[in-house]
Design a protein around this nucleic acid. Structure first.
Lengths: 113, 113
DNA sequence: TCTATATATATCACTTTCTTATATATATAG
DNA sequence: CTATATATATAAGAAAGTGATATATATAGA
């Protein structure tokens, strides 16, 4: 998933849910482009990570999908389920705590920049 | 490794190297206690993650170990190798970038707290 | 015309890294 | 006698990535 480091392991689902919480509906390829744009090319979502992750989120009931034909190509739109909407709230709290603990352990607190 | 979330996947090696960069020498059990103390019990290093990680760091030449008998019990001290000392610098840069990108993607920027 | 690239999704073999459980051993507290 | 703390180690299994491959359409360029 990550372009240059291993640290993003475990964060992909949260990133995808967050994208969907802001965009109502998105398709996989669109997510890869959005992330690339937001991180200025530093983080590249690979298909081998992305699609299985989306399938798992759907199997777990956190997202719903619908397939459409656009420009003669198959496109699969995802959106947050109601369960996914409550789940992303918890995931963001967990992510925030994770970042704080990691900054603490690595002495990377924002105040020390 | 983590007490309550999956996000720490991939960060364990960096945390261990950082501990050793600050402490000259530490043994495994000591690291678990140190992390527990620093995170106020929120992050618990499990043995099944810790010891294999230390063995891997040693196999990769980033740490060195020496065994001692203390209080009649075996204790294995680890310290950074010279390679480990240069590696931790890069890992901390990568961790810092990782945190910034994650904050960006999840809208968890410090300024928004 | 052919090729490369972009768009778009999917799966599979493999690797890494974790969890959970088990094992061993000593010391101390109840 | 038992539980807990100290201390290290490994093994089976799960989860989540990487890298490669496959399929299909559209477009740009040589």
């Amino acid at each position: 998933m990550a372009a240059n480091n291993e640290l993003f392991k475990g964060t992909l689902q949260t990133i995808l849910l967050k994208l969907l919480s802001e965009n109502d509906r998105m398709y996989g390829y669109e997510m890869t482009q959005r992330v690339k744009l937001l991180t200025e090319g530093q983080l590249v979502l690979k298909e081998g990570a992305l699609y299985p992750a989306l399938h798992k989120l759907e199997a777990d009931g956190l997202v719903e999908s619908s397939t459409e034909i656009v420009d003669n190509r198959v496109r699969k739109y995802y959106s947050l389920s109601s369960q996914g909407q409550s789940e992303i709230v918890h995931r963001l709290v967990a992510a925030k705590e994770f970042i704080q603990q990691l900054q603490l352990l690595l002495n990377l607190n924002p105040a020390m920049n």
